[in-house]
Simulated assay, not measured.
Amino acid sequence: MKKIHPDADSALSGLLFDGMTIAAGGFGLCGIPELLIAAIHRAGTQALTIASNNAGVDGFGLGILLESRQVKRMISSYVGENAEFMRQYLSGELELEFTPQGTLAERMRAGGAGIPGFYTRTGVGTVIAEGKEHKDFDGRTHILERSIVADLSIVKAWRADPSGNLVFRKTARNFNPSAATCGKVCVAEVEEIVPLGSLDPDHIHLPGIYVHRLIQGQHEKRIEQRTTRKKETV
Protein backbone atom coordinates (compact mmCIF):
# COMPACT_ATOMS: atom_id res chain seq x y z
CA MET A 1 0.00 0.00 0.00
CA LYS A 2 1.39 3.38 -0.99
CA LYS A 3 1.12 5.65 2.05
CA ILE A 4 3.02 8.75 0.95
CA HIS A 5 0.91 11.66 -0.37
CA PRO A 6 2.20 14.89 -1.91
CA ASP A 7 0.46 17.27 0.52
CA ALA A 8 -1.98 17.52 3.42
CA ASP A 9 -5.03 18.17 1.27
CA SER A 10 -4.55 15.01 -0.79
CA ALA A 11 -3.73 12.97 2.33
CA LEU A 12 -7.10 13.93 3.84
CA SER A 13 -9.04 13.44 0.62
CA GLY A 14 -12.14 11.29 1.16
CA LEU A 15 -11.66 11.14 4.94
CA LEU A 16 -13.41 14.28 6.16
CA PHE A 17 -17.13 14.62 6.86
CA ASP A 18 -19.30 16.88 9.00
CA GLY A 19 -19.86 15.67 12.56
CA MET A 20 -16.77 13.46 12.66
CA THR A 21 -14.49 12.87 15.66
CA ILE A 22 -10.78 13.66 15.29
CA ALA A 23 -7.98 12.72 17.71
CA ALA A 24 -5.11 15.20 17.43
CA GLY A 25 -1.62 14.79 18.82
CA GLY A 26 0.41 17.56 20.40
CA PHE A 27 0.83 19.39 23.68
CA GLY A 28 0.41 23.14 23.52
CA LEU A 29 2.16 23.84 20.23
CA CYS A 30 4.73 21.07 20.68
CA GLY A 31 4.32 18.26 18.17
CA ILE A 32 1.04 19.47 16.67
CA PRO A 33 0.01 18.36 13.15
CA GLU A 34 -0.11 21.96 11.93
CA LEU A 35 -0.23 21.15 8.21
CA LEU A 36 -3.14 18.73 8.57
CA ILE A 37 -5.03 21.16 10.80
CA ALA A 38 -4.63 23.86 8.15
CA ALA A 39 -5.95 21.44 5.51
CA ILE A 40 -9.02 20.67 7.63
CA HIS A 41 -9.59 24.42 7.90
CA ARG A 42 -9.41 24.78 4.12
CA ALA A 43 -11.80 21.86 3.66
CA GLY A 44 -14.41 23.64 5.80
CA THR A 45 -15.54 20.47 7.60
CA GLN A 46 -18.13 21.37 10.24
CA ALA A 47 -19.45 20.21 13.65
CA LEU A 48 -16.19 18.53 14.61
CA THR A 49 -15.54 16.76 17.88
CA ILE A 50 -11.82 16.98 18.62
CA ALA A 51 -9.98 15.02 21.29
CA SER A 52 -6.77 16.87 22.09
CA ASN A 53 -4.94 17.95 25.22
CA ASN A 54 -5.71 21.57 24.34
CA ALA A 55 -6.67 23.66 21.32
CA GLY A 56 -3.41 25.35 20.40
CA VAL A 57 -3.38 29.14 20.68
CA ASP A 58 -5.34 31.95 19.10
CA GLY A 59 -4.70 31.94 15.36
CA PHE A 60 -2.54 28.79 15.24
CA GLY A 61 -2.96 25.06 15.56
CA LEU A 62 -6.44 23.92 16.49
CA GLY A 63 -7.16 27.55 17.38
CA ILE A 64 -7.84 28.30 13.70
CA LEU A 65 -10.63 25.69 13.67
CA LEU A 66 -12.20 27.29 16.73
CA GLU A 67 -12.06 30.74 15.15
CA SER A 68 -13.76 29.47 11.98
CA ARG A 69 -16.47 27.79 14.11
CA GLN A 70 -15.71 24.34 12.69
CA VAL A 71 -15.51 22.74 16.15
CA LYS A 72 -18.66 21.76 18.00
CA ARG A 73 -17.11 19.85 20.90
CA MET A 74 -13.69 19.52 22.53
CA ILE A 75 -12.45 16.67 24.72
CA SER A 76 -9.52 18.37 26.45
CA SER A 77 -7.47 18.85 29.60
CA TYR A 78 -6.50 22.50 29.33
CA VAL A 79 -7.93 25.67 27.81
CA GLY A 80 -5.75 28.35 29.39
CA GLU A 81 -3.56 29.45 26.46
CA ASN A 82 -6.41 30.07 24.04
CA ALA A 83 -8.60 33.11 24.70
CA GLU A 84 -11.11 32.14 22.00
CA PHE A 85 -11.39 28.64 23.45
CA MET A 86 -12.24 30.13 26.86
CA ARG A 87 -14.65 32.66 25.39
CA GLN A 88 -16.62 30.09 23.39
CA TYR A 89 -16.80 27.71 26.34
CA LEU A 90 -17.90 30.35 28.87
CA SER A 91 -20.49 31.76 26.47
CA GLY A 92 -21.97 28.33 25.80
CA GLU A 93 -20.99 28.29 22.12
CA LEU A 94 -18.70 25.27 22.50
CA GLU A 95 -19.28 21.93 24.19
CA LEU A 96 -16.37 20.90 26.39
CA GLU A 97 -15.65 17.59 28.10
CA PHE A 98 -12.91 18.25 30.62
CA THR A 99 -10.71 15.19 31.02
CA PRO A 100 -7.66 14.89 33.30
CA GLN A 101 -4.49 14.76 31.26
CA GLY A 102 -3.45 11.22 32.15
CA THR A 103 -6.99 9.97 31.75
CA LEU A 104 -7.19 11.52 28.28
CA ALA A 105 -3.95 9.83 27.21
CA GLU A 106 -5.18 6.49 28.57
CA ARG A 107 -8.61 6.86 26.91
CA MET A 108 -6.82 7.24 23.58
CA ARG A 109 -4.41 4.39 24.28
CA ALA A 110 -7.25 2.12 25.39
CA GLY A 111 -9.21 2.92 22.24
CA GLY A 112 -6.24 1.89 20.14
CA ALA A 113 -5.80 -1.31 22.15
CA GLY A 114 -9.42 -2.37 21.77
CA ILE A 115 -10.24 -1.77 25.45
CA PRO A 116 -13.73 -0.21 25.76
CA GLY A 117 -13.18 1.32 29.19
CA PHE A 118 -11.16 1.30 32.41
CA TYR A 119 -11.46 2.32 36.05
CA THR A 120 -9.39 5.10 37.60
CA ARG A 121 -9.29 7.02 40.88
CA THR A 122 -8.54 10.27 39.06
CA GLY A 123 -11.52 12.59 39.26
CA VAL A 124 -13.34 10.79 42.07
CA GLY A 125 -15.28 13.30 44.16
CA THR A 126 -15.17 16.01 41.48
CA VAL A 127 -17.44 17.08 38.62
CA ILE A 128 -15.40 14.72 36.42
CA ALA A 129 -17.12 11.79 38.16
CA GLU A 130 -20.68 13.02 37.66
CA GLY A 131 -22.84 10.54 35.75
CA LYS A 132 -20.12 7.88 35.63
CA GLU A 133 -20.19 4.40 37.10
CA HIS A 134 -18.45 4.08 40.48
CA LYS A 135 -16.83 0.87 41.69
CA ASP A 136 -14.68 0.01 44.70
CA PHE A 137 -11.34 -1.77 44.33
CA ASP A 138 -9.34 -2.61 47.48
CA GLY A 139 -11.51 -0.26 49.50
CA ARG A 140 -11.05 2.73 47.19
CA THR A 141 -13.61 4.23 44.84
CA HIS A 142 -12.88 4.36 41.13
CA ILE A 143 -14.83 5.74 38.18
CA LEU A 144 -15.34 4.15 34.79
CA GLU A 145 -13.85 6.04 31.85
CA ARG A 146 -14.78 5.09 28.30
CA SER A 147 -12.06 4.80 25.68
CA ILE A 148 -11.86 7.10 22.67
CA VAL A 149 -12.14 5.71 19.14
CA ALA A 150 -11.93 8.51 16.58
CA ASP A 151 -12.94 8.58 12.93
CA LEU A 152 -9.55 10.13 12.15
CA SER A 153 -6.23 10.61 13.90
CA ILE A 154 -3.83 13.39 12.89
CA VAL A 155 -0.31 13.36 14.30
CA LYS A 156 3.11 14.95 13.82
CA ALA A 157 6.39 13.02 13.90
CA TRP A 158 10.03 13.76 13.20
CA ARG A 159 10.95 10.95 10.81
CA ALA A 160 9.18 8.19 8.94
CA ASP A 161 9.97 5.53 6.40
CA PRO A 162 7.67 4.69 3.45
CA SER A 163 5.92 2.02 5.55
CA GLY A 164 4.81 4.67 8.04
CA ASN A 165 7.08 3.67 10.92
CA LEU A 166 7.40 6.84 13.00
CA VAL A 167 10.09 8.39 15.20
CA PHE A 168 9.13 11.34 17.39
CA ARG A 169 11.63 13.90 18.64
CA LYS A 170 11.98 14.32 22.38
CA THR A 171 8.91 15.86 24.10
CA ALA A 172 7.11 16.21 20.76
CA ARG A 173 6.15 12.58 21.26
CA ASN A 174 3.65 13.60 24.01
CA PHE A 175 0.08 12.59 23.00
CA ASN A 176 0.98 11.65 19.43
CA PRO A 177 1.43 7.85 19.74
CA SER A 178 -1.77 7.43 21.75
CA ALA A 179 -3.73 9.69 19.42
CA ALA A 180 -2.42 7.81 16.39
CA THR A 181 -3.56 4.41 17.59
CA CYS A 182 -7.14 5.36 18.48
CA GLY A 183 -8.20 6.52 15.03
CA LYS A 184 -9.92 4.31 12.48
CA VAL A 185 -7.61 6.05 10.00
CA CYS A 186 -4.35 7.77 10.95
CA VAL A 187 -2.66 10.47 8.86
CA ALA A 188 0.83 11.55 9.92
CA GLU A 189 2.91 14.53 8.88
CA VAL A 190 6.67 14.36 9.30
CA GLU A 191 9.74 16.50 8.77
CA GLU A 192 11.65 13.82 6.90
CA ILE A 193 10.90 10.56 5.10
CA VAL A 194 13.92 8.28 5.03
CA PRO A 195 14.52 5.15 2.90
CA LEU A 196 12.96 1.89 4.00
CA GLY A 197 15.28 0.01 6.33
CA SER A 198 17.24 3.05 7.49
CA LEU A 199 15.38 3.37 10.81
CA ASP A 200 16.75 1.28 13.66
CA PRO A 201 13.84 -0.96 14.73
CA ASP A 202 14.72 -0.26 18.37
CA HIS A 203 14.26 3.46 17.78
CA ILE A 204 10.79 3.31 16.22
CA HIS A 205 8.16 4.78 18.53
CA LEU A 206 5.07 3.88 16.49
CA PRO A 207 4.87 0.94 14.06
CA GLY A 208 3.66 1.70 10.56
CA ILE A 209 0.68 -0.65 10.98
CA TYR A 210 -1.10 2.26 12.68
CA VAL A 211 -0.32 4.82 9.96
CA HIS A 212 -2.44 4.82 6.81
CA ARG A 213 -1.32 8.01 5.07
CA LEU A 214 1.83 10.09 5.29
CA ILE A 215 3.11 13.49 4.18
CA GLN A 216 6.39 15.35 4.46
CA GLY A 217 6.37 19.10 4.85
CA GLN A 218 7.91 22.29 6.18
CA HIS A 219 6.75 23.26 9.66
CA GLU A 220 6.63 26.62 11.37
CA LYS A 221 6.90 25.03 14.84
CA ARG A 222 5.85 28.23 16.58
CA ILE A 223 6.94 28.70 20.20
CA GLU A 224 4.00 28.98 22.59
CA GLN A 225 5.72 30.77 25.46
CA ARG A 226 9.11 32.32 24.73
CA THR A 227 11.10 32.86 27.92
CA THR A 228 14.53 34.51 27.82
CA ARG A 229 16.96 36.07 30.26
CA LYS A 230 19.40 38.90 29.91
CA LYS A 231 22.93 38.02 28.88
CA GLU A 232 25.21 37.94 31.87
CA THR A 233 28.26 40.17 31.76
CA VAL A 234 31.53 39.29 33.41
Rank of each mutant, 00 (worst) to 15 (best):
A8K: 07
L94I: 01
M108H: 07
G31K: 08
H212D: 14
A55R: 11
E192F: 10
D138V: 02
P162T: 12
L104C: 02
L36D: 10
L94N: 04
T181F: 04
I209F: 00
E97K: 06
A24H: 10
I40C: 09
G44T: 07
T99W: 08
M86Q: 15
G164E: 02
A113T: 05
L166W: 08
L90Q: 13
S68G: 00
I64S: 06
S147R: 08
A188L: 00
G80V: 02
L166F: 01
I204P: 03
G183I: 08
V190S: 06
R169T: 04
T126V: 00
L166C: 00
A150Y: 03
A188P: 04
P207C: 05
V167H: 08
L206W: 00
V211R: 06
D200I: 07
G26I: 09
I75P: 06
G208Y: 02
G117T: 08
K230E: 14
I64M: 05
A179L: 01
N165Q: 00
H203D: 15
S163C: 12
G111C: 10
R169S: 14
E130H: 12
I209D: 15
L65N: 07
F17S: 15
N174G: 09
S163F: 11
I4Q: 03
L36N: 01
R213P: 12
E93F: 06
I143S: 01
V194D: 03
F168I: 05
I64A: 04
G44S: 06
T233L: 14
K72A: 14
K170R: 13
A38F: 05
G63D: 08
I128M: 06
A47Q: 15
A38S: 15
N53W: 10
I22T: 02
A157I: 10
S52L: 05
G31L: 11
A110W: 03
T141K: 02
V211H: 06
P195Y: 12
G92Y: 00
I154P: 07
L15T: 00
V234Y: 15
L166S: 06
T233M: 13
